[in-house]
């Protein structure tokens, strides 16, 4: 398909991507603006790095970032395990009792409005605390559990897509040769679906790192995550250090996503070359 794009489609592409990226670009540019009035460009003293310096002296922001990072990492790991298991069941277990409910439960958390997920989670934690005394109070633990529940749905979708286009002959060969199912999973299945598991982990990490609404419902005093802190500042209007923070986050995410994307692509190419080489007659 090397047909030239029509002028209309080309225009829409250019305008659409401009629409997606200009606001982010403006945020980056204004993070170097010296004026405290964020939207007025102070051409005498700009560009400056003072908001970045201020950012790293702000212990509230650093603490919140550290807490968010910890929650996101634990959540991503847990959600990846749960989501991979769920995807495995959906693709490999054929028809089992309760399958329809299982499918509904693995997809609904993705589309349910966050305010409803957040409220329902909080009411569960309150009820549990009353009945069995756990979890005592709310904080990092309850935030992590809530995040794992909605993030595992995303991991399931990503891993499921990969598993369903999976050539099972390798697994069958290993089973025929007497390998135990567990061993087959770790030695054959997992390496093959690894790219989707890594993408799922990354997605779960970022969804958690980013979440405001669900977190606000299930967090307690003393556990303020980065999005909560940003939201409370932003509600009062624009502030220059948030521009600096946003720039750093956008930069990090871009580097990580592009880096992981490229290395997965390279790995894929290498594997398919190896498979080709192995398939060729000697």
């Amino acid at each position: 398909m090397n047909k030239r794009l029509s002028p209309f489609v080309l225009t829409m592409l250019v305008l659409g991507f401009a629409f997606l990226y200009v606001p982010i670009l403006m945020m980056v540019i204004y993070s170097f603006n010296a004026s405290r009035l964020v939207t007025v460009w102070d051409s005498v003293h700009s560009p400056t790095l003072k908001w970045y310096a201020e950012l790293f002296e702000n212990s509230d922001i650093l603490d919140a970032a550290r807490l968010s990072f910890r929650i996101a990492a634990v959540n991503a790991t847990g959600a990846t395990i749960l989501g991979t298991l769920a995807a495995f069941c959906l693709v490999r277990f054929g028809k089992f009792r309760g399958r329809a409910l299982f499918i509904a439960l693995t997809t609904a958390p993705m589309v349910l409005p966050e305010v409803i997920t957040g409220l329902s989670m909080l009411l569960l934690f309150v009820a549990l605390e009353q009945v069995i005394g756990w979890p005592a109070g709310r904080g990092a633990l309850t935030i992590t559990i809530a995040h794992m529940t909605f993030c595992m749905a995303y991991v399931t979708v990503v891993v499921q897509a990969r598993l369903s286009t999976f050539d099972r002959s390798l697994e069958e060969a290993a089973l025929d040769l007497g390998a135990r199912p567990m061993k087959v999973f770790f030695l054959i299945t997992l390496p093959i679906i690894a790219p989707s598991v890594v993408s799922g982990w990354l997605l779960a990490f970022i969804l958690s790192w980013d979440d405001l609404v669900i977190t606000s419902f299930v967090s307690g005093p003393g556990s303020t995550t980065l999005p909560q802190l940003i939201f409370s500042k932003v509600r009062l209007g624009v502030s220059p250090d948030i521009n600096a923070l946003a720039t750093l986050l956008v930069l990090t995410v871009t580097l990580v996503v592009v880096g992981v994307g490229l290395s997965l692509q390279r790995r894929e190419r290498r594997l398919s070359l190896e498979a080709q080489a192995a398939g060729e007659p000697l």
């Binding site: 982010i24 945020m27 980013d210 405001l212 940003i230 521009n243 986050l249 871009t254």
Partner: peptide, 12 residues
């Protein structure tokens, strides 16, 4: 990229 920050970009 953060949903919150992308909405915030429009405030400015």
């Amino acid at each position: 990229t953060s949903f919150l920050l992308r909405v915030y970009a429009w405030i400015g």
